[in-house]
Design a protein around this nucleic acid. Structure first.
Length: 559
RNA sequence: UGCCGAGUAGCUCAACGGGUAGAGCGCAGCACUUUGAAUGCUGUUGUUGUGAGUUCGAAUCUCAUCUCGGCUGCCA
């Protein structure tokens, strides 16, 4: 990516912070946080938030905390915590100090809840969940006060203490903030702030049987950590009045400012942790890190680089309008990166044998080919020219379509980095399938244009003698629908692309590819960008994942 | 028939003390080319959701109206 002296474009959050800093608000400091719930893997939408929060912190010379918002032990687990940590690190960000956990504030949170009760601003509710729903009213009708709303402070204190002590059954009581049952904002209709959950917590074990709700926890956690700008997504907009209410009601160390931005939507993909989990649980994909998943782990295994993802996040901007980004943008950002940084290699995906009739059977020439056409610093690689070669089946046509410029019977083509060959004869099997091409090479065309004619086509190839076998996994978008989630009649599970993974066996790779490493991408010339699979490749079997194809204007011409 | 938010090129975004709209992606064409890639050049599309008003002048200010999104978990 070309980034010289390019200041990042401003957006509304940068403007707010710039203004705050210049006015000396918060002592001119900036402190943000990225607060995932450990209930699934992070996805590309989280990457946007991570880049925003950590990016803002570093731009303003501030800090960004990584805090697990772990207030619902029923859905959370430790395995997600470690996955999230490594995703954030891989993206290239460093959190300030130790990792934070909302659960480590449980004592303080409990104290604040007691403080709220003492101020007459919270009460213990004994209505059932169903009754509470009825009392809450609807979007167009106000709610009505609970008969338990006016319990005395002492009674509330006693009841809350006994909730904490485990005297009551799960679901029998909750602690509610006493705000306004007629508010137009349903979040303000006496929201629940503590519930009984007789569940072990992955961090605090069996210390607690009551757990604070998000709205109560998040703002206080931010305040405890001295967060200055609490950046979150649009769906929390209606929660902001509650965020502010809690902090105004309590004597907290600070009062951060919540700012909402539009979450990322990408076409042809889903960014819902719940649905992503469903794909994993129902074995539609091989796991959270399946290369087709829009998770950070999946993109990483697929061959995306962290810088391409960071770049993408900068490219799409930050606003309050809820739009859908074209997949093409993500693909642009990875191609842009890999075109510059991935060494080139040749790999024949669907081999077709080629025999050079005028080349001696026992000869072998070693050719030095540059690893990158525009970057000599990347060095050279060695490939071999021998009597028997492979080219791709797609690069030969018995009946060429219009404008076809690869190999045809009687025609010539350049073998990339090598000689021009001519196809003299086509051999077929009993079913009429082309199984071998008998060709001749022009010995005067190595590094030279052929004399007296023009050869337009260039084709990738490999020596049958020195090529190494490989499995290549051709990945494509996971869904056939632009908006897999958009149709209420059709489940996203029904629009999974059956060709999102096509496994090619018996591919022939140039010998240097035997030393491929995970996360070290290559461009397979004329095919796309590929990377060794980090999980399934072994010392005796190369397995490559296709990250993305090359731009393909031929596909547009040929349909 | 509530509250909140958003509506600028196909997509993502700029234009922020009012002066008839720009970029990236995409797309098209040309050049170059031992990747039908990359690169370079050129070009493309907008009655700034709509209708009024203020003004010499409005994407920017005012009013009205329409459309879309979020909100009725003891989820986050």
């Amino acid at each position: 990516m070309s980034t010289p002296d390019k200041t990042p474009p401003s957006h509304f959050i940068r403007q707010i912070i710039t203004k705050d800093v210049s006015e000396g608000k918060n002592g001119g400091q900036v402190a943000t946080r990225f607060p995932p719930e450990p209930n699934g893997f992070l996805h590309i939408g989280h990457a946007k938030s991570i880049c925003l929060n950590f990016g803002l912190a570093s731009e303003y010379d501030g800090t960004c905390n990584l805090r697990f918002d772990d207030t619902n032990p029923e859905k959370e687990s430790d395995e997600y915590i470690s996955a999230i940590k490594s995703d954030v690190e891989w993206l290239g960000f460093e959190w300030a100090g130790d990792i934070r956990y909302a659960s480590s504030y449980f004592d303080k949170l409990h104290g604040y809840a007691v403080q709220l009760i003492e101020k007459g601003l919270a009460y213990v509710e004994s209505l059932t969940a169903d009754e509470m729903r009825e009392y809450r009213g609807t979007l167009t009708e106000p709610g009505k006060n609970s008969p338990y709303r006016d319990r005395s402070i002492d009674e509330n204190l006693d009841l809350f203490a006994r909730m904490k002590a485990g005297e009551f059954d799960q679901g029998s009581m909750v602690l509610r903030a006493k705000i306004d049952m007629s508010s137009g904002n349903i979040n303000m209709r006496d929201p629940v702030i503590y519930r009984i959950l007789k569940v072990e917590h992955h961090q605090t074990g069996s210390d607690w049987c009551i757990y604070p709700m998000y709205d109560f926890t998040h703002c206080i956690s931010d305040a405890i950590e001295g967060i200055t700008h609490s950046v979150c997504t649009l769906e929390f907009e209606a929660h902001r009045p509650l965020y502010d209410w809690v902090l105004d009601a309590l004597e907290t160390p600070s009062h951060p400012q919540q700012i909402e931005f539009a979450r990322l939507n990408l076409n042809y993909t889903i960014t819902s942790k719940r649905k992503l989990k469903q794909l994993v649980d129902e074995n539609v994909v091989s796991g959270w890190d399946d290369p087709r998943m829009p998770t950070i782990a999946g993109l990483r295994r697929r061959g995306y680089t962290s810088s391409s993802i960071r770049n993408f996040c900068e490219m799409i901007g930050v606003t309050k309008s809820d739009g859908t980004v074209d997949m093409g943008m993500l693909e642009f950002s990875i191609r842009d990166d890999l075109d510059k940084n991935a060494p080139r290699a040749m790999c024949v995906l669907q081999p077709l044998k080629v025999v050079i009739e005028n080349y001696p059977a026992d000869a072998r020439e070693t050719l030095s080919v540059s690893a990158h056409p525009k970057n000599e610093a990347m060095g050279v690689r060695e490939i071999h020219f021998t009597k028997e070669l492979y080219i791709d089946q797609n690069d030969f046509a018995e009946v060429p379509p219009p404008k076809f410029k690869r190999l045809i019977e009687g025609g010539e083509v350049r073998l990339r980095g090598s000689y021009v060959i001519k196809c003299n004869e086509v051999l077929k099997d009993a079913d009429g399938n082309v199984i071998e091409l008998r060709c001749s090479y022009d010995e005067n065309t190595l590094g030279k244009k052929p004399e007296g004619r023009k050869v337009k086509g260039v084709v990738h190839w490999v020596s049958a003698e020195t090529a190494v076998d490989a499995e290549v996994r051709m990945y494509d978008r996971l869904f056939t629908s632009e908006n897999p989630d958009g149709d209420k009649e059709v489940s996203f599970l029904d629009v999974v692309n059956p060709e999102s993974l096509v496994v090619l066996q018996g591919c022939k790779a140039e010998p240097g590819l035997a030393k491929a490493q995970p996360e070290k991408p290559y461009q397979f010339e004329r095919e796309g960008y590929f990377v060794l699979d980090g999980k399934d490749a072994s010392s005796d079997m190369l397995v490559f994942n296709r990250t993305v194809t090359l731009r393909d204007s031929w596909a547009k011409i040929s349909g």
